[in-house]
């Protein structure tokens, strides 16, 4: 038995003296002894792993998503601001000139490579279909995190099919998690140019029972100037269970729309 083995045996039998414990420490530092070899410590370490993680309160979830929504609004504003500033400068004129030149050049190249592009187009379509399939299967998962991933994946799909928007509407109307419903609403916002999506959004208003989603829907309707949503919004206002703050926000939205 070599010295390392001897020390491990002593330690495991509780017979190691302080100087031997320092020796073991040095061996641990050098990687010559692993925790798994030290029976009691490794048992304790394993038990620590089994201590379960706490559940996060809904309040923290709401605070986080509010912070994120605020950040999104700010970053959108700052992008539009910087664009205005740039467009006013002489530099902008130079950039526009260079861009026009590049566009002209690319157009020439495009004509040449039309055949090649058809192939790329087919490939892009296949990738898009694959993402659709993946998204729909993730939406069926039990974990809210997976369903959030699905919603986030939908945003990467170019020109989504009816299958995708239907899946997003199903999530918006029936997912048990408020966060997932909010995320699907956000994803559908990107497709609001489509009349069918707008109609679907209006129909979905009355199905929402979470104040957070109700307010988010009201805000979206105001942004889209969707006047046909007024009667659905009124329905929420008339419900006894709707919190006063939500009623107030919806009232403001209706005032904007009518």
């Amino acid at each position: 038995m070599n010295r390392v083995e001897e020390l491990i045996v002593k330690y495991n039998e509780g017979l190691a003296d302080p100087s031997e414990i320092i020796e073991i420490e040095n061996l641990v530092e050098q990687g010559a002894v692993q925790f798994t070899q030290l029976r009691e410590l490794s048992k304790l370490d394993e038990s620590l792993e089994k201590i379960s993680e706490p559940i996060v309160s809904q309040d923290l979830d709401s605070r986080f998503y509010e912070m994120l929504a605020k950040e999104k609004r700010t970053s959108k504003k700052s992008i539009s601001f910087s664009w205005t500033a740039i467009s006013e400068s002489i530099f902008a004129k130079m950039v526009v000139g260079a861009l026009l030149l590049a566009v002209g050049f690319s157009a020439g190249l495009l004509l040449e490579k039309r055949a090649e592009n058809t192939e790329v187009g087919v490939l892009a379509k296949e990738v898009s279909e694959m993402k659709e399939m993946m998204m729909i299967s993730l939406l069926e998962k039990e974990s809210a995190t997976d369903r959030l991933k699905a919603v986030s994946l939908s945003e990467e799909i170019q020109g989504p099919s009816k299958k995708v928007t239907d899946a997003l509407f199903k999530t918006l109307n029936s997912d048990p998690s408020v966060n997932v419903r909010l995320a699907s609403l956000d994803a559908l916002r990107n497709y609001a140019k489509s009349a069918t999506v707008r109609e679907g959004l209006v129909r979905s208003i009355a199905q929402q029972d979470s104040p957070l989603v109700q307010v988010a829907m009201a805000e979206l309707m105001a942004n889209l100037q969707e006047k046909s949503s007024v009667s659905e919004l009124k329905k929420i206002m008339e419900q006894k269970s709707t919190p006063t703050e939500v009623k107030q926000r919806i009232k403001e939205t209706i005032n904007i729309l009518i």
Binding site: E53, P54, F64, L68, A144, T145, S152, E155, A183
Partner: peptide, 23 residues
Amino acid sequence: DGDPDKLGLLYERYKRPLLGFFI
């Protein structure tokens, strides 16, 4: 790179380990 929405997924992944650490 300008897509703050993706932080939502990271939050969902790490909110519980972080809360465990802080508590």
